[in-house]
């Protein structure tokens, strides 16, 4: 049982930290977007002594530096190669984005990003994100509860599930040229999961608009499930009566189930899920059931065999 004591390099002197933040704001994520690109992203992603966001989760785990989130990302819509995702993601255009909420609702609505910003004020939530590949990261998201978005469309009583679809455009999301996968990306939650206050739509992180590599302009965040449930670049939300299919379950059903709750006792066929690496650390830490959010979410799975329904 190894905890994660903050190491020497986690402590950034206040003035350095403030200077870095100021610098970051001045330079802006825009510079990276405009694609000084490759080289800059290389330097950033290979430097673990990054910009500190400050803060910690409810267990006291420090928030990871932002370059961990941008430099080590699974985003198969862009590339299967984590080292290339940041560079290739810069082709994504987030202007003129729309997000529609439809299906089994009384009021189908299509939003643009301004509508969303006005109607659903964001607040910061620090969450753990556990990847199915046995690594994790602590992130400060800016977002709002998914339930608020769904309620605005007045779900019908018959709605049992919520389906999410990501944008399909292989000219921007070049990973979608890879025909081994059933694009566009699609995910789903049961209604009660979707309405849970921990479940949110994120529009930013680290106090900035969501970086392209992390699912700009708007994405789902489900902190107690493996990262692949948290669909990026969402354009369509549909309420359904039947359980929808999900991207990874269709691709490899033996390894990836519909539920995908973080569970240290249910292993991936190829590797153990009992422990994980927190990005920036060299020691493994035990993985927690429901990623440590059990006291808030376990009641939704009472009576369910989590081994069978993985």
């Amino acid at each position: 049982m190894k905890a994660q004591p903050p190491t020497e390099k986690d402590v950034t002197p206040q003035e350095v930290y403030l200077k870095r933040r100021a610098l970051l704001k001045a330079v802006g994520i825009g510079v990276i977007s405009m694609g000084l690109g490759g080289l800059l992203s290389q330097v950033k992603s290979s430097d673990t002594v990054g910009i500190k966001a400050g803060g910690s989760d409810e267990f006291g785990n420090p928030v990871n530096p932002m370059n961990h989130a941008t430099g080590f990302t699974n985003y198969y819509d862009v590339s299967v190669d984590k080292r290339r995702v940041q560079e290739l993601a810069q082709r994504i255009r987030t202007d003129e984005w729309t997000l529609s909420v439809g299906g089994a609702v009384h009021k189908p609505i299509t939003y643009n990003l301004d509508d969303i910003a006005k109607k659903f004020p964001s607040r910061q939530e620090i969450c753990r994100m556990r990847c199915v590949e046995a690594w994790s990261v602590v992130l400060p998201w800016d977002g709002f509860p998914l339930g608020d978005l769904l309620n605005a469309s007045e779900p019908m009583g018959s709605a049992k599930f919520v389906r999410f679809e990501s944008k399909l455009d292989p000219t921007q999301f070049v990973g979608q040229l890879n025909k081994a996968y059933p694009w566009p990306y699609f995910e789903a939650l049961r209604m009660d999961e979707a309405m849970h206050p921990l479940c949110m739509m994120a529009v930013g992180m680290y106090g900035q608009p969501l970086p392209k590599v992390n699912g700009a302009p708007i994405r789902l965040v489900v902190p107690w499930k493996y990262g692949f449930k948290s669909a990026k670049a969402v354009i369509k939300i549909e309420l359904t009566e039947e359980q929808p299919q999900t991207f990874w379950n269709v691709t490899n059903p033996a390894a990836y189930g519909f539920w995908a709750n973080v569970n240290p006792d249910v292993h991936h066929p190829n590797w153990s899920q009992a422990s994980e690496y927190r990005l920036g650390f060299k020691e493994k830490i035990p993985t927690l059931l429901f990623n440590g959010y059990g006291h808030q979410v376990a009641h939704m799975y009472k009576g369910m065999d989590l081994r069978a329904l993985y």
């Binding site: 992603s45 430097d47 673990t48 002594v49 430099g71």
Partner: peptide, 13 residues
């Protein structure tokens, strides 16, 4: 890279 802490976000990986 190891000496300079430049192994990236997931050094063991």
């Amino acid at each position: 890279d190891s000496a300079l802490h430049r192994l990236g976000p997931h050094p063991v990986h």
